[in-house]
Computed example of a mutant assay.
Amino acid sequence: MIVDTHLHLIDRSVLRYPWLAGVPALNRDFSYDEYAVEAHRVGVERVLHMEVDVDPADIEAETARVEGLSRQPGSMLAGVIASCRPEEADFATYLERQRTNPFVKGFRRVLHVVPDDLSEGALFRDNIKRLGGTGLSFDLVVLPHQIPKATALADLAPNVQFVLDHCGVPDIKGNGEHPWREHMSEIARRPNVAAKVSGVVAYAEPGSWTAETLRPYVEHTIGAFGWDRVVWGSDWPVCTLGGGLSTWVAATHALLSGSSVDERDRLLFANASKLWQLD
C-alpha cells in the first residue's frame, strides 16, 4: 500500500495557474483520471492533493474542485493541502473557514519562488503560529539555501506540524550535497518537522539518472529524520520531468530494498495515515 501525499491536478478550464506559462512541459491539463490509471497499477491507495500555486483568487475554488472529485465512486482522494497566504491580513479569517472543512488537512505557501525574507515577516510568522493546536500541517517547499529559514519557522512555532517537501529540493544534477546535507541534519533536530521523500527524480539529469544517483539524498533524509518522520509523495505531474510516477515508485522500492517491512510501511503509508488522520 502507498499513500501519495503530493499529487497536483491541473485543470486550466476551471482554474488559473500563472506560473505554467514558464514551464511548457507542464502547461497542459493533468487530470485525476489520468493519474489514477497509473497510480492503481503501482499500489497507490490513498492520495492527498497538494495545492498547485493557482491564482490567489482561485485558492478556495481549487479546494472545492478537488473535494468534488473526491466524491466520485472509487476516488482515492482523501484530503487536500490547501494554498494560503500567511503574509496577508485576512489569513486568520481564511483559516477559520478552512477549519470547518475536514477535507482540508493542511496548508502550503510556495516559498522557493518568492523573496527569501517573506517568511521572516512578523505577520507571516504570527499567522503560521495560528496553526498550532488546529491539527493542520504546513508544508515547506524551499531551496537548500532557504532551509535555515524553514528551520527558524519551526523554532518559532513549535506546536505546528511542518512537512519539508522533496527532501529539501537538493541540486541532484549538480551533485550538490553541501550545504544541503548540513541544513537537513539541522532542521531534522526539530521534532515538529517531518520530511517528504518526493519528487526528487525531477532534480536529476533526465534520461541518465539511476536509483544510485538518488540514494545519497534519499538515504540522508531518512537517516536525519528517522523512519517515524518521513512520508512519501509522487509530486505528479512534476515527476514526469524525470521519468514519471511508475519510474519513481520503482526507484523508491530499489532504494528501500535493504530496509525492513516495517520501515517501508512507515514511509509508504503508516506515517502519513497517522500525521493526517487518514484512517
Rank of each mutant, 00 (worst) to 15 (best):
E120K: 12
N175R: 13
V238S: 01
S70H: 01
Y32I: 05
V114E: 04
E96I: 07
H6P: 04
E67P: 06
T210I: 09
A92H: 03
G132P: 11
P144L: 04
V238R: 01
V238N: 01
Y17P: 02
S246G: 14
A150S: 08
V44Q: 03
D139E: 13
V44K: 03
D117S: 13
G132H: 09
S234P: 04
A194I: 14
E88R: 11
L48V: 03
D265I: 12
A64Y: 06
P24Q: 00
P102Y: 05
H178W: 12
P148S: 08
H40E: 15
D116I: 08
A39E: 00
I59T: 13
Y32A: 00
A224I: 01
G68Y: 07
L123H: 09
S260H: 04
E212T: 14
V44Y: 05
Y32R: 02
L214G: 03
S260P: 08
F225T: 03
V47P: 05
E34R: 02
S246E: 11
V193T: 05
M76P: 04
E51I: 06
P56V: 10
E87P: 06
R229D: 08
D139H: 10
A251F: 10
S246T: 14
V52M: 13
R28Q: 12
L20K: 00
E182I: 04
V23N: 07
L256S: 10
D11N: 14
E182A: 08
D235R: 02
S185N: 11
Y94P: 02
G207D: 02
I222D: 02
V52A: 15
T247H: 14
G106N: 00
D58Y: 02
S234H: 04
D171N: 09
I172H: 00
P148M: 05
E263S: 08
M184W: 00
K196T: 07
E60Q: 11
K129E: 14
G22A: 15
H145P: 14
E96W: 03
D126W: 12
V218G: 03
I59N: 09
D4R: 00
R97L: 11
D4G: 02
D117W: 11
R190T: 09
D165F: 07
Y217D: 02
D33V: 10
D165L: 06
V52K: 05
V201A: 06
S259T: 15
H112E: 08
K274V: 15
G132I: 13
R28T: 10
